[in-house]
Structure formats: C-alpha cells, structure tokens
Design a protein around this nucleic acid. Sequence first.
DNA 1: AAGACGAAAGTGGTTGA
DNA 2: TCAACAACTTTCGTCTT
Length: 306
Amino acid sequence: MIRKTLKECPECASKNIYRDQDKGETICRDCGLVIEDRMVDFSQEWREFDDDGASKRRTGAPTSETSFDRGLGTEVGSTSDFYKLGSERERDRFFRLRKWNIRISTAIERNLKVALAELKRVSSFLKLPKSVEEEAARIYRLAVQKGLVRGRSMESVVAGALYAACRRHEVPRTLDEMGEASGIEKKEIGRTYRFVTRELEISIKPSNPADYIPRFASALKLSPETQSKSVEILEQARDIELTSGRGPTGIAAAALYVASLIHGEKRTQREVADVAGVTEVTIRNRYKELIKKLKLGKDVEKSKKK
DNA sequence: AAGACGAAAGTGGTTGA
DNA sequence: TCAACAACTTTCGTCTT
C-alpha cells in the first residue's frame, strides 16, 4: 500500500503536523487546518479480552464486528459426521452439543442483529469514526456473551458500549450527547457503562479535557488561534494539578471561555456552557481558578482595552 | 436589559469505616 | 451498608456594562 506522508502544511507551510490515528485526522497545529481526514486506521488490533489475555493472534479472513455474525458462523459438526461416530455415548454427546450450539448462537445472533442496527444508528447520528463503531460492537458482543445484557435494556448497553469505545479512542462525547442520540437517560448510560467496563475489565484512561476542545470550538465558531490557546491553557492547568478530580468538560469549557476573551472573540458564559453541557456556575468556578493560578488576569485585561 | 458574579441549598456518585 | 464528602447543578439576588 502506498502511503503519502505529508511533511508540511499546505496552508501555512508549518512543519508542526499532528497525526491523530484514533480520530483519523491529520491536523496542522499552527493554523488548525485539517489536512487529511480519511487516513487508514493503523492501530493495532488488540485482543486483550482473550481468556489468557496474552494472545494477539490475527488469523482468518477479514471480519467486521458490525456484521451480526462477523460474516462467520459456528457450527458443531453436521449430521453427516454422525455416521463416523462410534459408540452410543459419543452420539448422545454429539447431538447434545450440536443442539445447544444452535440454540445459544441463534439467540445471541438474533440479539446482535437488532443491537448492531441500533448501534449503527446512534453511531451515525453522532458522526463517530468507523474505528469507534467497530470497537463498540466488539464490546457489545462480549457483553452479550457474558450475559451482561440480562436485566438491562439492550439500548442502554449499546449506548454504554459506544460511550466506552469513544473514551478508549479519545474522541469523547458527553453522556448528554449520548443520551440524546440513543434516547436513554444519561445516568442509565453511566450505570451500564461502569458495569460493563468493570465486568469486562476494560481499562479506560481518564478523559483528557483537550479532547473536547476541537468540537466545542467549532460549535462556537471560534478561530484556530483561540483553539490552540485554550489547549495551551489546559496544558498549563494540568501541570499544576488543576485538572485532577474535576469534570473534564467543565475545565475544557472554562479554558475555551478564557481563550475567547484573550483573543477578543468573546462568547458569553451561557453560550460556552450550552455547547459544553455544563452550567455557567461551573465555568465561573473553573475560570476563577484558572485566572488566579495561571497569572492569566493581565492577559485578559490587556485584550479588554483594545 | 443582558451578562457576570456569588451564596446557599440540593443532587448523584464515590469512598472509607 | 451507611455516612461523610467533593463536584456539580439549580435557584436567586446583586452588581456591572
């Protein structure tokens, strides 16, 4: 496969190019231009849910997690194998296994068929990358096989799996957005999300506030400079432990608000709060902390005079 | 009049005994 | 299992532009 590698930004000729494989985007850090947004997913196919946890085999035909049976089916023998079997006991065993395999797999497959349709619907509603959709499908499949759906609505488990997949790929959506897309209460999604990730032992990094910036910024029609500035602010904030323990969306919103002030592209707290899904009060609290701990006061003052 | 600010009370989730 | 606790929200009154 031929892969063209861009060395500099065609817009501003900057060499500061960032390739984000999970989001499938190549971005210029200086001017914010999205140079390429349909790159190939080079990420490794992790198989950490295997029984021994160590196997990373990748064999067999290409499969898609979003096809209800991955294009494959399982079958325990066929009736013609029956005649090769010797004893009475072996025949009994053979039929029992075959019967159960059919019974279980049809039940699971029927469930998966419906669930994956729902998953695709929500995923496309949120405009999520294919890689995230595949990951979510994989998580859901595991959840079904472990019987984790029992007692929970299928939709909520789908939403939980999607949410988890988003987090793993660092393209976070808020619980509110997920709730709106799936029609499930956000606390219900949160519950199943925690339950599923715990049962499946999926480890997830705490989400990084900076991951929310591009989406919030474009919703507010803020310039790339402002966007870079807010990421910069977030980095400083993280260095002095201002970010730990706080809700990531609140911090992202506050950083964006401050950046918008500094660059003279003022947005009201209300506007920022709406796109970030937090309240003005939370923005104010984070905002105060940022100003105080990050000497940003004079920067804001300076740009006010202009 | 709208936006920013802050106090006070309430909510849902985590933690530690 | 329960109570303490921190983060966040809601609500409301006051100040600033």
